[in-house]
Computed example of a mutant assay.
Amino acid sequence: MLPAAPPGGASTHVPVIPQPRVPVPQVDHVLLALPPTAASASVLRALRSEGVSVSPVGHGIGVLDAVRARDPALIVLDVELPGPDQASVLAAVQSESPDTPVIAVTPRERRAGLLHLLRGDRDDYVLRPFAVDELAARIRLRLRMGPAVDHAVLRHGELVVDTEFGDVTVDGQQVSLSPTEFALLKAMLGEPGQVVSPDRLAREVWSEPASANLVQVYISYLRRKIGPERIRTVRGAGYVLEP
């Protein structure tokens, strides 16, 4: 027997309980601009196996178009990719997508010339030939770090210092510094544009007490190598590292 209809002939209404919306996970997209080699293919497979969206580009001509089309979270760019001069491509990519970090892949002999092109707060580089695991790990780490990260490359104007490898470039030219000169420059880069006292430099550079005269001597050595206009003396106060 069918159940009796409700009074007035109204139909039975079963309320629909709305289900909570499940957020769709955001997938990071990486533009992998590397020559088509076995190593780059292995990196591509490793990233895709972990759910990372990857667009491979094997020629410099397609890099900028791919950046515009895919808006990647990270760009990996080989500086010896076939096609246009990759220094120009790198500059165009940075201009087109200024907040997107770049990992440049470079042979060791071109590293010094590359440093002044990198933005120290977001870009990185890997030496070629690279280990597949190393590059894949660097990409994963950079994606986790977000849009900006402290970096081993410090830049002040056209002065670029790689604190990991000890390289220094001025106006794109590599400069050779002694360990003490390098430590002095690194200490000044901690406060670029600010007056740094001789006492503070002495404490940071020398493990034993050093006189203001010794600091002055090494400041003069440093000026000869990076340019006298880049270190300004503030009489009675200390020194300022200018851009």
Rank of each mutant, 00 (worst) to 15 (best):
D150V: 14
V24Y: 03
V54M: 01
R21I: 14
A237E: 15
P3D: 10
D167K: 01
P18K: 07
V52S: 00
H151K: 14
P23T: 06
L214T: 13
A137T: 14
T12F: 14
L201V: 00
R235Q: 10
V195N: 07
R155I: 10
R223V: 03
Q19M: 13
P179K: 05
P15F: 04
H116V: 05
D171A: 12
L118R: 02
E50F: 00
G51W: 04
R144V: 05
S11P: 11
A136C: 00
L127S: 10
H116T: 11
A136V: 11
H156F: 04
P36M: 07
I226C: 10
I139Q: 02
V175P: 00
A137G: 14
L34I: 03
L2K: 13
P7W: 09
P228Q: 15
S95P: 03
V102T: 01
L34F: 08
S178K: 06
A92Q: 11
L77R: 03
P129R: 01
E164M: 14
A4I: 06
A38Q: 11
P20N: 06
P198Y: 03
E50P: 08
G58E: 12
V67H: 09
S97E: 05
V54W: 01
D85W: 05
P228T: 12
S11R: 15
A212N: 09
V16I: 13
R230Q: 01
A137Y: 14
L2V: 12
S178P: 01
R144H: 14
A87K: 12
A212C: 03
P25D: 03
Y125G: 08
D167M: 13
V67C: 05
T169K: 05
D199T: 13
L118H: 04
E80A: 09
L143T: 05
E96N: 09
S207M: 06
Y221Q: 12
S11F: 13
D171T: 08
L141W: 12
D71L: 15
V126W: 03
R140Y: 04
D171N: 09
H13G: 07
P36N: 12
A212Y: 10
P179A: 06
R128G: 13
T233E: 08
G236S: 00
V215G: 00
V234K: 11
L81W: 07
P20R: 10
S197Q: 03
A92F: 00
A92Y: 06
F182W: 04
P101E: 02
P15G: 10
K225C: 02
L159I: 09
P192V: 02
E158N: 13
S49T: 10
G227A: 08
R48D: 09
G236C: 06
A5T: 13
Y221K: 15
V175D: 02
Q173H: 15
H59W: 10
D78Y: 02
P25N: 04
S53P: 01
V205T: 02
R122C: 12
V132Q: 09
A152W: 12
L214M: 11
G166F: 06
P18A: 07
A152M: 08
I219G: 00
G193A: 07
L177M: 00
Y218V: 02
V76R: 03
A73D: 12
V24G: 09
H151R: 15
R48H: 10
G83Y: 07
G62Q: 08
Y221M: 08
V170Y: 03
P243S: 14
V57I: 11
Y221L: 05
P6T: 01
